[in-house]
């Protein structure tokens, strides 16, 4: 892999070169403590020392709500005009979020490819950025603290510069377009990078053991833990919304006042909602909150493993940080383990 060096004082200049490749979206501040990915107006507005954004990158490719097509009684249906060929560059994406995109690509690129998702996904370049974990991060345990692919460029902070890994030919074009800003990597840079990597590895405060968890979950299917969790959980849907790999959506029609036309809409859904498993006749497969919470854990940590060979959790810590009731995935998993393993 090609690796080059970008001195930090050249970053603003590099960002302006990047604008030729598309609209730049980067972490910016919202509220007192939160961050979101948003269009970058001024390079000064970028917040590179953010830990996590409220919503992950899925919002770009599977928006919270979208019109799939418009319909009219006489004319049939037509797809809404997309924002042409507008290209995006999402700058400053952490490894866990890049992993989550790889997971979503798998899910939406399965037997029935989701055109809505990929029409947007193919227009976005990803520029990664390494990070220092906080108390909520457990990506080291999920094996998602580092990325080998899934990015066009990936920046690692080595004090006064970034080491830039070039992941794709598009990434290479970006570097070439700003050729004069980049330098060759020296032996000292490599030493700095190694030191930084070790430091980063040592700064994780949370860990989770996911190995053999599918079996443990099967054994604990009837556990009292789910009941207790159902009493704690508000069913508010926050964890699903902020989860980078929760991809469920509901599809429904909205009608216009002319009584002859409307839109087919898809909107994020969550297995924690009471209506999620509601079917004709008023039957509900998961009428109890406890069974809905259990379902969410089972899908992430057990069902997904059977289907894709890995859990869909990437250890980003969003569910734990944003849960109003303070439900902590690490505590839940530890409790489940303690019932079965010493």
């Amino acid at each position: 892999m090609k690796i080059v060096k970008l001195p930090k004082e050249k970053l603003a200049e590099f960002l302006s070169c990047l604008r030729a490749f598309g609209e730049i979206h980067a972490p910016t501040k919202r509220g007192e403590k939160s961050h979101v990915f948003a269009p970058l107006k001024e390079p000064a507005g970028i917040e590179l020392d953010y830990t996590r954004t409220i919503l992950p990158l899925k919002k770009y490719f599977l928006p919270p709500m979208e019109t799939m097509f418009n319909f009219q009684a006489e004319k049939g249906y037509e797809t809404p005009a997309e924002e042409s060929d507008k290209k995006y560059i999402i700058f400053g994406v952490h490894p866990c979020d890049i992993h989550s995109l790889k997971i979503l690509d798998l899910v939406f690129g399965g037997k029935y490819v989701d055109g809505h998702y990929f029409s947007r996904r193919s227009k976005a370049a990803i520029i990664g950025l390494d990070c220092i974990p906080d108390e909520f991060c457990f990506c080291r345990s999920t094996g998602t603290d580092f990325v080998d692919d899934g990015f066009d460029l990936f920046l690692s902070d080595i004090e006064d510069s970034y080491l830039v890994r070039v992941g794709t030919s598009l990434g290479d074009d970006m570097v070439k377009a700003a050729d004069t800003l980049f330098q060759e990597v020296t032996v000292q840079d490599r030493e700095k990078y190694k030191k930084k990597s070790i430091q980063r590895g040592q700064s994780f405060q949370s860990e989770i053991q996911l190995q053999d968890l599918p079996e443990i979950m099967d054994l604990e299917y009837e556990s009292q833990i789910w009941q207790e969790l159902g009493e704690e959980c508000l069913g508010c849907g926050t964890c699903s919304m902020v989860c980078p790999t929760c991809y469920c959506y509901a599809v429904f029609d909205e009608l216009n006042l002319d009584a002859a036309s409307g839109q087919r809409i898809r909107r994020w859904d969550s297995c924690l909602f009471k209506d999620y498993a509601l079917v004709a006749g008023g039957h509900n497969f998961r009428a109890q909150r406890s069974s809905r919470v259990k379902n969410r854990y089972f899908h992430k940590q057990r069902g997904f493993v059977s289907q894709y060979g890995r859990p869909s959790c990437v250890g980003c810590g969003r569910c734990k940080e944003y849960c109003p009731a303070g439900v902590d995935i690490i505590e839940v998993v530890n409790k489940l383990r303690s019932e079965t393993r010493v």
Binding site: R30, S34, I54, L55, P64, C236, G237, S270
Partner: peptide, 11 residues
């Protein structure tokens, strides 16, 4: 909460 998160308002 669901709509609040969809719109990315700080909690």
């Amino acid at each position: 909460c669901t709509e609040c998160k969809m719109a990315e308002y700080p909690c």
